[in-house]
Amino acid sequence: MGFKLLSKLLVYLTASIMAIASPLAFSVDSSGEYPTVSEIPVGEVRLYQIADGVWSHIATQSFDGAVYPSNGLIVRDGDELLLIDTAWGAKNTAALLAEIEKQIGLPVTRAVSTHFHDDRVGGVDVLRAAGVATYASPSTRRLAEVEGNEIPTHSLEGLSSSGDAVRFGPVELFYPGAAHSTDNLIVYVPSASVLYGGCAIYELSRTSAGNVADADLAEWPTSIERIQQHYPEAQFVIPGHGLPGGLDLLKHTTNVVKAHTNRSVVE
């Protein structure tokens, strides 16, 4: 069995187990497998329904001669939608809004960016022009300005110390501490036991640490421990890039980060 097929099978099995364990909360999309990078042309966006009122959005972007996937989250909030992270750029984010209108038909009224990198804030200006209120932590807003990236308009308070959590509509926002970046936030959907790890969490097929220019490698494993301790009931975990899975993604990420750190020390 090929690795790609095995990865998709694991996603399907995880979703099936969740649907059985929580039949009222989960209505997993039966329309197909989780979209992969090879299936999404740059400039297009796919939506994948995880649970009743919960979707991931998947886009792709060219970077350094390669094409990478990027995940975000959409959560229903009454007759409105909360968006977590842009679709990595203005063109993708405009396509995301169009796809949401086509498939869901509810307005996106608020959006949260989970850290300051372009795959999370690139497209904020498109959201703002569409009347979406954009939010991020003060740290993310400051770092985005320093980096020359787009800056969300509103500040999220109460997320300055490791372990801080605040309720934001249908989700809980959690600051686990520094990891992929010093400002990275985690998003949890309690009604569906869905954990969105953003770039602080890796997919299972990833074996290298990737972009760690703004990471705190020493603190990252401790931050992941905080996530595990705060959300032990999480059933569906979405990484910032690639295929979702279960809580095993947290341990896998820790292993990859520690291996990278150990290699760096040896070198």
Rank of each mutant, 00 (worst) to 15 (best):
G158Q: 09
Y48L: 15
A21M: 14
G78D: 14
G240V: 05
T207P: 10
D119N: 05
Y135H: 08
Q103L: 14
S27L: 12
L10Y: 15
M18A: 14
T86W: 00
I201S: 05
T93C: 01
K251L: 11
L24I: 15
P190D: 11
T86L: 00
L9T: 14
V45P: 12
E147C: 08
F168N: 01
Y175A: 02
E39P: 10
N255K: 11
G123V: 03
V108Y: 00
A213F: 09
A178C: 04
I186H: 05
S137T: 12
P107Q: 12
G53V: 08
S139H: 11
A130P: 07
Y188K: 02
A218F: 11
T36Y: 13
E99L: 14
H230T: 13
V112C: 06
D125W: 07
V166F: 07
T182W: 12
T93A: 02
W55G: 02
S27G: 12
L47T: 08
I186M: 06
A215W: 03
T36W: 14
L10S: 15
A21K: 15
V108G: 01
I84Y: 00
L127S: 01
E172G: 02
V67Y: 15
E267L: 10
V189L: 06
A98P: 06
S16G: 15
A66F: 15
D119L: 01
G148P: 04
G163N: 09
V265Q: 13
T254A: 10
I201T: 06
L159V: 11
N255E: 15
F116Y: 09
D77P: 03
S7D: 07
G198L: 03
A130N: 15
I224A: 02
N184A: 01
P138F: 08
S16M: 06
V256R: 01
T14W: 06
H260Q: 11
E99Q: 13
P239Q: 03
G2E: 15
I17D: 06
S70P: 05
A95E: 09
K251M: 12
G53L: 07
G242R: 04
T14I: 08
A259C: 05
P41I: 09
I224G: 02
A90V: 09
V266D: 14
V189T: 02
L249A: 01
E219S: 12
A209T: 08
V45M: 04
N262I: 10
S208W: 08
A21G: 13
D119I: 01
L249Q: 02
E157C: 07
V166D: 06
P170E: 05
A215C: 05
Y202D: 07
S113R: 03
D118T: 14
D216G: 05
H260V: 12
D216N: 12
D85A: 00
R167F: 12
I224W: 02
V42A: 15
A179L: 00
S30W: 08
A15H: 12
P23T: 10
Q103S: 14
K251P: 14
P69M: 15
D183C: 00
G148Y: 06
D29K: 09
R120M: 01
L5E: 14
D52M: 08
A90L: 06
V194R: 01
M1A: 05
G123C: 05
I238D: 01
L250V: 04
A90D: 13
A218N: 12
A234K: 04
D118G: 11
A15K: 07
A133I: 14
G246S: 12
P138S: 08
S139T: 12
H252C: 03
V212F: 04
V37H: 15
L47K: 03
V54R: 03
E157P: 10
D183H: 03
V108M: 01
V75H: 05
C199R: 02
S113T: 05
S31P: 10
A192S: 11
P221Q: 08
R110D: 03
G53W: 06
G242C: 06
W88G: 00
H230Q: 13
A234I: 08
A51Q: 07
L249S: 05
T86Y: 04
V189Y: 02
I20C: 09
W220I: 04
K91F: 08
D85F: 00
D248C: 07
I224L: 06
T60W: 14
V126D: 04
F3D: 06
E267M: 11
V124K: 01
